[in-house]
Design a protein around this nucleic acid. Structure first.
Lengths: 185, 185
DNA sequence: TCGTGATTGAGACATAGTGTCTCGATAAAG
DNA sequence: CTTTATCGAGACACTATGTCTCAATCACGA
């Protein structure tokens, strides 16, 4: 993918950065996380190796950035739900469904294990916590467990969607998760 | 840790292999998965680099073996529960509690992301599926979702224990998971 | 007890990846 | 048109990889 310069210089940098992250994601999916190299990424992305080092200092920072970008995309979709109105209970239901669907479709990006990557994941956890807290306040779901703990439970449970064999299975998974939230103790 | 030879030659090889896996786990916990090298492992384990290559061909195989060993250990503990009698419902409860507790204490071994590592994890999934199926047959839990899907849900949900702030939180997490299993639709 | 065979650590070696640097070329910005 | 920023290529020293040889060490069995 030979680099065509974009109109403005800042747009160009953004485009190159995106190409780098895309390339890294592809290489991880193809050869695994441990065998991805800076040289590989540079060559595959069609840029010079030295240029790559002007964007990212090492492989780990690239994988982190790629993961961040992905989570940020998820979060944006989820946030759209809360802005489109509806009562808290139904918002929560929609959020879980969307999150599970995105996890199911993405299927392969298990780079959550880079460690010390509390950044974007924390943001996502706080978002879901907020939705859960509001749902609990309206009495739509249980309030005997802290919203933060419920949110962590939900996100982990829905991670199972990545291994689900079908969309129907994903639906059952979400239902299962919602059931445990709605139960009054 | 300078290598003292053990009585028999096979025991020796086993001891060296364990030392390698322990060293690898320590290095991963300390510096992350992506920066672990064969040279590092050899030096830290107190063996020659060439010797290390006679045990494992590369870093990835070492991390996979370490993960396998860990999962096998878990599975052994869990299997002990089912052999100690009790009805299926209580066995399931005990299995989930133990699994969550082990996840909580282990805290750091997120090397499940090595990819294509269906081996040991699949075994664990099948074990939990069996416990769930038996519990469902006795009517202790719901039977409107396949045991395999319920097991996947449980294992992922309980993975949240790794981030739990306290043992009490782990207890609530297990309760939450059990609640969703017990619900009759 | 003593020879045989397996395993060892050390180090040589070619290859590949890293991280930093300089260069001349090229394109946007002013 | 001049300045300024980015570019790809390549040089460089360094580290890691994977394979190999070698002499020394140790378990094993006759």
């Amino acid at each position: 993918m030979p680099k065509l310069w974009n109109e403005t210089i800042e747009e160009h940098r953004g485009a190159v950065q995106e190409a780098i992250l895309d390339t890294a994601a592809t290489l991880v999916a193809k050869h695994g996380m441990l065998s991805v190299t800076m040289s590989q990424i540079a060559q595959e992305a069609g840029i010079g190796r030295a240029t790559l080092y002007k964007y990212f200092p090492n492989v780990e920072s690239i994988l982190r950035a790629q993961h961040d970008r992905q989570l940020a995309g998820h979060l944006e979709h989820l946030a759209a739900v809360t802005h489109s109105g509806g009562d808290a209970g139904h918002q929560l239901e929609a959020v879980l469904h969307i999150h599970a669907a995105m996890t199911y479709e993405h299927h392969g990006s298990p780079m959550a294990a880079i460690m010390h990557h509390e950044g974007a994941r924390q943001t996502q956890l706080e978002f879901v916590s907020g939705v859960i807290r509001r749902a609990a306040e309206t009495g739509a779901i249980r309030d005997d467990v802290a919203p933060g703990e419920l949110a962590s439970f939900c996100l982990h449970a829905l991670a199972a969607a990545a291994e689900s064999p079908s969309k129907a299975a994903v639906g059952r998974l979400v239902q299962l998760t919602l059931d445990s939230l709605r139960l009054r103790s």
